[in-house]
Amino acid sequence: MASFMFGYTLGVFFLFTAAAFVCLDARSMDKTQDYMSFQYHKGALLTGDISINLIWYGKFKPSQRAIVTDFVASLSSSRRTTTVSKNPSVATWWKTVEKYHHQVSKKTTRGLLTLSLREHILDEGYSMGKTLTEKNIKALAGKGGQSYAINVVLTSADVAVQGFCMNRCGSHGSGFGSSGKKFAYIWIGNSETQCPGQCAWPFHAPAYGPQGSPLTAPNNDAGLDGMVINLASLLAGTATNPFGDGYYQGPKTAPLEAGSACTGVYGKGSYPGYAGELLVDATTGGSYNAKGVNGRKYLLPALFDPETSACSTLF
């Protein structure tokens, strides 16, 4: 199974990333300008009706799975089977991703993207052990549907994954299934016990940088609410740069994408160690910026808006 891999690190490290970008190639001003510009590289974006398949590896409570399931269901603004709360909503947040597709569709016949949840695959017996390599993640991703699909591998808090916590909280890539069809996949780890200061911020004190009081997770589960943040960012990156030649900033080997270009930004006025202006649930004290189905509340990352060339927050 061939693939490429894009990692996503969550937290207060976005300033260090930005600083590193400025120094990527000082030999050519034109080349540096290309790196600093968010560009469309003429490749494919995910379009049409795409199924999201969730592959749960390890132990997850039904209540934890429901947090992710409701988030995926909340992405579609056309969903009417369950009550969707008014703005700011998850569906409104996703409309920034749709702007990328609108820009491409102006020049091509490609359709827009719609997402829907299809299947759950449970692997509670740790079929590949509790220490996974990149090869294992690809194999797990291959268990999901391989036609018009994004297969999301979620690993539980007691599973170690190659590169997890050291340089990434999740990643996305693509592979070829047994039928030869190309599909996209995402991996996300539960950082509740392994590296919450890196991958569950702002629901945990940051491992580095300015220190502030952590926020209360909107679904009372810092690990899973952190996974939703990662999933949201990686879904945006997968939709707009699924095969490495879509929308991104910087070199192809280390791109900033629609979500990762705005790491650490959740509301207006954000800065390192401060997530920005957010809403607070009067009952639970949980901080959030988006509402979803079944009364859910989520904290979602800002996305890079291709129309304004800036990080866009919900309010």
Rank of each mutant, 00 (worst) to 15 (best):
D225S: 15
A254F: 13
I186N: 02
L299H: 08
T109H: 11
S287D: 04
G285S: 13
N230M: 15
S76A: 08
Y8G: 07
K138L: 05
G269H: 03
L54Q: 01
A160K: 14
R110W: 10
L15S: 12
Q64Y: 03
L24I: 14
A91I: 00
M227Q: 15
H120K: 06
Q249V: 06
S127E: 11
N241V: 01
I50T: 01
F315W: 06
K61R: 12
L117P: 02
E124Q: 14
N167T: 14
V97T: 13
M36E: 09
F6H: 12
W94A: 02
G48F: 02
Y288T: 14
S213D: 13
N241G: 06
L15M: 10
A160L: 10
L278R: 06
V265D: 05
G145Q: 04
V84M: 07
G129C: 05
T263D: 07
D123W: 11
L113K: 01
A254T: 15
L54N: 00
T193M: 08
P214N: 09
L140M: 04
L278F: 09
H101Q: 08
W56S: 01
A18R: 12
G163S: 14
D34G: 04
Y185S: 07
H101I: 07
Y126A: 04
V72C: 03
I137T: 01
G7Y: 08
T253S: 06
M1A: 09
V72Q: 02
I121D: 10
G226Q: 13
C169G: 14
Y208Q: 08
D305A: 07
A239M: 08
A2G: 02
E124W: 12
H41A: 00
A207M: 08
N230G: 15
